[in-house]
Design a protein around this nucleic acid. Structure first.
Length: 191
DNA sequence: GACCAGATTGTCT
DNA sequence: GACAATCTGGTCA
């Protein structure tokens, strides 16, 4: 997808990413997964966002150019990946919460402990483990970094919204988007 | 199925 | 020093 696709409001990008395909060239193999769940995180006006308290060393890529990855480490052991959105200088991003595995499933299963296919990418830290996304990928450009997002032209089915999962502030905002009938959506529940 | 504790460290106050 | 945009494996039903 062109950078202009990401350089829009995070809530718009989050919804439109459903049905698109995340791809990674990983050595000799290619990994592909259809995006079925996302969340939008804005900047200084969004108490649920890492960027709420302004620019820090950790959140600086959220303030940068759209179309780059923001990967953060949390709970002492997990990574989660976002795509930076909006105009440069204003923080916003879309968290990728769940994928439907398409290509490279054997590789994903090895990394995920040989679990069933619908448990390989049904959560933000799980899909990072399946795609081997770590802090090394923080700041990577989706146009040149070997990780990219394509429009396969697949109609995503019925889209539902809810509040976001796992946050303590900004709970009232309906910034989570998911394909309601897809078995790969994460099991987490809004609070 | 629901519920709960433990893991484990970067980041910010 | 508190807490985190989470996951897993255990218990009890």
């Amino acid at each position: 997808m062109p950078r202009s696709f990401f350089a829009r409001d995070a809530t718009v990008v989050a919804r439109e990413l459903l049905g698109h395909v995340l791809a990674r060239q990983d050595g000799d193999t290619v990994l592909r997964g259809r995006i079925v769940e996302t969340e939008a995180y804005l900047g200084v006006d969004d108490p649920g966002s890492h960027a709420y308290r302004g620019r820090t060393n950790r959140t600086q890529v959220m303030f940068g150019e759209a179309g780059h990855l923001y990967v953060y480490f949390t709970y002492g052991m997990h990574f989660c990946m976002n795509v930076v959105t909006g105009e440069e200088g204003v923080a916003s991003a879309v968290l990728l919460r769940a994928l439907e595995p398409l290509v490279g499933i054997d590789c994903m299963r090895v990394r995920r402990g040989m679990r069933p296919v619908d448990q390989l990418c049904n959560g933000p830290a799980k899909l990072c483990q399946a795609f081997s996304i770590t802090r090394d990928e923080n700041g990577v450009d989706l146009e040149t970094g070997g990780i990219w997002i394509e429009d396969e032209g697949t109609y995503p089915g019925e889209i539902a919204t809810s509040t976001r999962i796992g946050i303590r502030t900004g709970r009232e905002l309906q910034y989570r988007y998911y394909v309601s009938d897809n078995p790969n959506v994460s099991p987490g529940k809004p609070s």
